[in-house]
Write a protein that binds this DNA or RNA. Structure first.
Lengths: 182, 182
DNA sequence: TTAAAACATGTAATTTATTACACGTTTTAA
DNA sequence: TTAAAACGTGTAATAAATTACATGTTTTAA
């Protein structure tokens, strides 16, 4: 096995909250979960097929408009069991974060490198934007204590992502300040 | 093209510091760079072959002991050019951090979930260990200001990884404390 | 009303990554 | 001295992920 096929569990987890189409699932990776996982529809549709073959999900066909068929997928009982066992299982492997900028940084030998400043500034812009975006999402999605408790895991990971970006931005600022003046 | 083939640049970057064998490169992913990228030898040897075919690296054969042949790879001038352009190019894409624990957390609905506490505690242990490990590495690899300046990029990313783990541990502790008492 | 954007579902080709298979040498410590 | 660990280099099989190809419907806004 080449990896652990986490996509299947993500799909099960999302379907456990509510029935969704392949298209809905695809969109979920642009917002909700996109912070922590990426997947394209070309990966999702075949995975849905496999999950259904294995009995973890089923689908019903609904008609949108005149004739557009939508496949609305539901999780089954054994699907819920599989999801539950994945969550309950330990998670002992900390995957390396594949951060291309950090990778490039590694190959910079000296703090006098003329490229350094622009590189850090670019990332500062990107991560500041992301931080702002996450702050807005947290505020709009979880405005009240009640809303936070209602979907606790989601709240936690958004808050985690926010804190992570906050650290990243601070570190970049600090790194920029520490750069030699000329 | 399926991705950007960053592995080739990592190899070039490492060879730019000093000539290395495939075996040396493989080991680099266990220590140095393993914090930010992973690769197995089965990926590295074919990549070395391709880089050599394209003229970005060359190798010389040295004999270790009686007859063990080692291929010591060197970066070429055009290899250095390629490496330089990769570093100089912008890095506008922030890749999603594929964190399985965070993924699982997303599917936890309520803060009363009985699995939550053990899950957070496990991660706390793992990340605390990692934090300790990084602190020791930073202290041993970069004990002096001079050593930090001598290999600035490496210093920066180690320090970044350390801060990241520190945040993670703090967040986990905070999350654990916020859990309802029973 | 009509064109663009969004909705909706798939497959094919290619690349990247992991695990497994395969073989042999040198060094180190019991 | 001898067995295990580390050194050293490769290929094969498989799985995961990205990009590209392919097609059609419905909604929305100009």
């Amino acid at each position: 096995m080449a990896q652990k096929n986490k996509l299947q569990f993500i799909i099960l987890g999302l379907l456990n909250q509510q029935p969704l189409t392949g298209y809905d699932l695809t969109k979920a990776f642009d917002t909700e979960i996109g912070e922590f996982w990426q997947a394209q529809h070309s990966q999702i549709y075949p995975q849905l097929k496999r999950l259904e073959e294995q009995g973890y999900i089923t689908h019903e066909i609904t008609i949108s408009g005149e004739k557009l068929e939508k496949k609305l997928y539901h999780i089954t009982a054994i699907g819920q069991t599989l999801l539950g066992s994945w969550i309950s299982d330990g998670t002992p492997d900390l995957t390396a974060t594949k951060d291309e900028f950090i990778l490039k940084l590694y190959f910079i030998q000296t703090n006098r490198d003329p490229r350094l400043k622009a590189m850090v500034q670019e990332q500062l812009q990107l991560h500041t934007d992301k931080l702002t975006h996450l702050q807005q999402r947290l505020a709009t999605v979880f405005p009240t204590k009640a809303s936070q408790t209602a979907n606790y895991g989601h709240y936690l990971i958004l808050q985690h992502a926010l804190g992570r970006e906050d650290y990243y931005v601070n570190w970049l600022n600090q790194t920029l300040s520490a750069l030699p003046k000329r």
